Simulated scan of single mutants.
Amino acid sequence: MESVASSSTPHPHHHHRPRLTAAQSFSDRIIRAVRHRLRLLHRSGSLFFVLGATGNVYTVNLSAAVSCSCPDRATPCKHIIFVFIRALALPLDDPCLSRRTLRPCQLRRLLSLPTAADSLATATLRDRFHQISAQARAGGGRIPRPPTVVPEEGAACPVCLEEMGREERVVSCGACKNVIHEECFLAWKRSCRRRSATCVLCRARWRSGGDDPDKYLNLSAYVNEEDMVEDGGCT
Score class of each variant (00 low, 15 high):
Cys176Asn: 06
Lys215Tyr: 14
Gly209Arg: 10
Pro144Tyr: 09
Gly232Ala: 01
Leu47Ser: 03
Pro91Cys: 00
Arg35Ser: 13
Val223Thr: 12
Tyr222Trp: 15
His13Gly: 01
Phe26Lys: 01
Leu41Cys: 07
Gly165Asn: 01
Val66Leu: 04
Pro146Val: 00
Thr59Leu: 11
Arg194Tyr: 09
Ser27Cys: 09
Gly174Phe: 07
Asp127Ile: 05
Arg32Asn: 12
Phe82Leu: 00
Ala175Val: 10
Gly139Val: 03
Glu2Arg: 12
Leu20Asn: 09
Glu162His: 05
Val170Asp: 06
Asp211Phe: 12
Ser208Ile: 00
His42Ile: 02
Ile132Tyr: 03
Asn56Trp: 10
Val34Tyr: 06
Ser7Cys: 02
Arg19Met: 13
Arg108Cys: 08
Pro91Arg: 06
Glu182Ile: 02
Ser191Phe: 07
Ala87Phe: 06
Thr198Met: 08
Val57Gln: 07
Asp94Ser: 00
Gly209Met: 08
Ala53His: 08
Arg205Gly: 10
Phe129Val: 01
Ala187Gln: 15
Ser25Val: 03
Glu162Thr: 05
Ser3Asn: 11
Pro10Phe: 11
Asn224His: 14
Ala33Cys: 01
Leu47Val: 00
Ala138Glu: 14
Glu225Arg: 15
Gln24Thr: 04
Phe26Glu: 02
Val150His: 08
Val200Asn: 01
Gln131Ile: 00
Asp72Gln: 09
Gly210His: 05
His14Trp: 10
Ala53Lys: 05
Gly154Tyr: 05
Arg193Ile: 03
Cys96Glu: 05
Pro18Thr: 04
Thr148Met: 10
Gly165Lys: 08
Glu162Gly: 04
Val171Cys: 12
Val60Ser: 07
Arg99Gly: 02
Val66Arg: 12
Phe82Gly: 00
Phe48Ile: 07
Arg43Val: 04
Val179Ala: 03
Glu163Gly: 05
Asp94Arg: 00
Leu92Ser: 03
Asp127Lys: 13
Leu102Trp: 04
Cys176Gly: 09
Arg19Leu: 15
Arg19Gln: 15
Glu226Lys: 13
Leu20Gln: 14
Arg142Pro: 03
Pro12Gln: 02
Ser7Asp: 15
Leu217Glu: 08
Asn218Phe: 06
Ala74Lys: 05
Trp188Met: 01
Val200Cys: 03
Asp94Gln: 03
Gly174Val: 11
Ile180Tyr: 15
Ala64Asp: 10
Arg195Met: 07
Ser67Pro: 02
Cys199Asp: 06
Gly141Met: 10
Arg137Leu: 13
Leu110Asn: 01
Ser6Ala: 10
Cys184Ser: 06
His16Ala: 08
Ser25Gln: 14
Phe49Arg: 01
Ser8Lys: 08
Phe48Tyr: 15
Ile85Val: 12
Ser119Glu: 07
Pro158Arg: 09
Ile81Gly: 04
